[in-house]
Design a protein around this nucleic acid. Structure first.
Lengths: 247, 247
DNA sequence: CACAGTTTGTGAAACTTTTCACCAGCGATT
DNA sequence: AATCGCTGGTGAAAAGTTTCACAAACTGTG
C-alpha cells in the first residue's frame, strides 16, 4: 500500500461524518457521486481515496452505507477507544473537557495536568487536576495513548518531551509553535490564530484583486526583473482562497 | 504573480512567529536556512515562498528580521485590525473569548450572539451576549469583517448564511461539517475531532507497518534519495485543515 | 437473452507543490 | 583587486495530488 496522504485521511474523516448522516436518514446505499456532492469534491476523488484501502463498492450500485462506514472507521483506527491525557487546564483545556464531541468519536480524556499550584487539586469536569510533576508516575500507573498540549507557548516543547517520555504515541498541540518529536510519535497542531490569519490573507487578497482588475490592464508586469521594493500587489491572478459556493 | 497556495500562506504565518521570536532575541538578520531550520522545512521552501511576493533578502547576508516581518504581516493583511463577530457562546465560544492571543495578532471580537435565551443578556468577557435574531441589525450598526461559527452542528449553515447576509468577508467555522458559502466569502474550518482522528490513523498505521515489516513489502526507505540533511528528523505532519479553492 | 442505464476501480493525463542546483550579489580578507 | 565563503532568487526537475475517461460489473426491463 502506498503512503497515504494527509488530505486523504482528512477526507476519510469527512466521509465518516457524511455517512453517519446518511445512515441516520435511513439510506442503505450511496454512490461516490452523492458522497462527493455533500463534501463539495469530485466523485473521482472519493473513489481514489477509498481505493487506497480496498474495494468497498459494487459497480452499478454504489457503496453500502453501513459497511463503508465500518471500513472507514476501522481504517482510521476508530474501532477502538483511545485514552487521552490533557496538559494545561486553562481556556483551551477547559473547552476541550467541556466539549463532549470527542467521547462520541472514541477519545476519552483520562487525566488532566497543570503546573499552576492554584489549580492543582481542583476539579475540571470529572477530573482532578494533577501536578504536571506527577505526570510520569500517573502515566505509568494509568497510561494514555495521546497527549494534548494546551499550555502557553513556552512550556509546550517541555511538555511534549515529557509526554513522549511517558510513552504517548500521538500529540495534539494547541500551542502556536512548531514542536519537535521523535518520528514514532504522531503530531498534529491546531493553531487558531493561524486560521484567522488565513482569512485575513484571503480577504485582503480578494480586495487587492478587485481593485486591480480595471487598473491592472497595465503593460507587462515582467520586465527584466527589477520589481521595485514597494511594488508588491501587481496583477494577482484568479485562483482564490475561498471555497465553493453552494445550494 | 501566480496563485498563492494555502500551504504557502500557512507557512507565512509560521515565519511571522519565528521572526517575532528571533526579533526578541535581538538578532538583526536571519538566513533562509536558519529560518527553515526552526520550522523543520527546507531553505529552498522559504525562499520560494517569499519570492512569490517579492525579493526581500540580500545575498550573502540573509533577511533583515524587522523588515521581513513587516513585509510578511502586510502580505497577510495583519497591518490593520480586524473586527470579529462570534456566534455561539458555548464552550468553544467562551474559550475564544477568554483566549487573548487573537487580539495580539489584530483580531478584536466586537460582538457575541447566541440563541439560548438563558444566555442572552449575560456577559461573556467584556461582551453582552445578544440574541442571534438581532444579528442583522447589530451588524448594520457596528459591522464586522469576520464571523465565527461556534454553534452546534445543525445550526451552523443557517448561522453562516446569516453572517454572509450581514456582509462578513470571512468565516471561521468550528462546527464539524462542510459549510457552503458564496465564492466572495473566505471560509476556514477547524475541526478538533478530526485532528484526533488523524492521530488515531497515524498511530494505527505505524503499528500496522511495524507489524508487517517482515512480511509485507512496505514502502521502506527509498533507495533513490538521500535521507534528508541532518535536521530533517522529527517534525512530521503539522496541523492544517481548511480547504482548497473552489470553482 | 440482449440492451440500456448506472456506477466502481484505475491507469494515464493534468496540474500543483516541493526540491534541486546553480548563478549572481554581498562582506570580509588578503 | 582578486578571491573566498556565504546566501538569495529562480528555472527546471522531481514528487505528489487531483481529475479524466473508460473498461468492467452490476441491476432492471422488454
Amino acid at each position: 500500500m502506498t503512503r497515504v496522504s494527509e488530505s486523504t485521511v482528512r477526507r476519510l474523516s469527512h466521509y465518516d461524518r457524511v455517512l453517519e448522516e446518511v445512515q441516520a436518514e435511513g439510506k442503505r446505499m450511496i454512490s461516490s457521486h452523492r458522497l462527493a456532492e455533500r463534501e463539495g469534491i469530485t466523485s473521482a476523488q472519493v473513489r481514489k481515496d477509498l481505493s487506497t484501502f480496498g474495494s468497498f463498492g459494487r459497480r452499478g450500485l454504489g457503496y453500502n452505507v453501513e459497511r463503508l462506514r465500518e471500513e472507514i472507521r476501522a481504517i482510521l483506527g476508530l474501532d477502538r477507544r483511545w485514552k487521552v491525557g490533557l496538559v494545561g487546564a486553562g481556556n483551551i483545556g477547559s473547552a476541550l473537557i467541556a466539549y463532549r464531541g470527542f467521547e462520541k468519536q472514541g477519545f476519552d480524556i483520562v487525566a488532566v495536568f497543570d503546573r499552576d499550584s492554584a489549580r492543582i487539586g481542583q476539579k475540571l469536569g470529572r477530573h482532578v487536576i494533577q501536578d504536571i510533576a506527577v505526570l510520569p508516575a500517573a502515566a505509568r500507573e494509568n497510561p494514555f495513548d495521546i497527549g494534548v498540549v494546551a499550555t502557553p507557548i513556552r512550556a509546550a516543547q517541555d511538555v511534549a518531551n515529557a509526554l513522549v517520555a511517558a510513552g504517548v504515541r500521538g500529540i495534539l498541540n494547541f500551542a502556536p509553535r512548531k514542536l519537535f518529536v521523535p518520528a514514532h510519535v504522531a503530531l498534529s497542531t491546531v493553531d487558531m490564530a493561524m486560521e484567522f490569519e488565513g482569512l485575513s490573507f484571503a480577504i485582503t487578497q480578494s480586495v487587492a484583486r478587485r481593485r486591480g482588475r480595471a487598473a491592472a490592464a497595465v503593460p507587462g508586469p515582467k520586465p527584466g526583473r527589477a520589481r521595485g521594493p514597494a511594488s508588491r500587489n501587481a496583477g494577482r491572478r484568479s485562483g482564490g482562497r475561498t471555497r465553493r459556493a453552494g445550494t
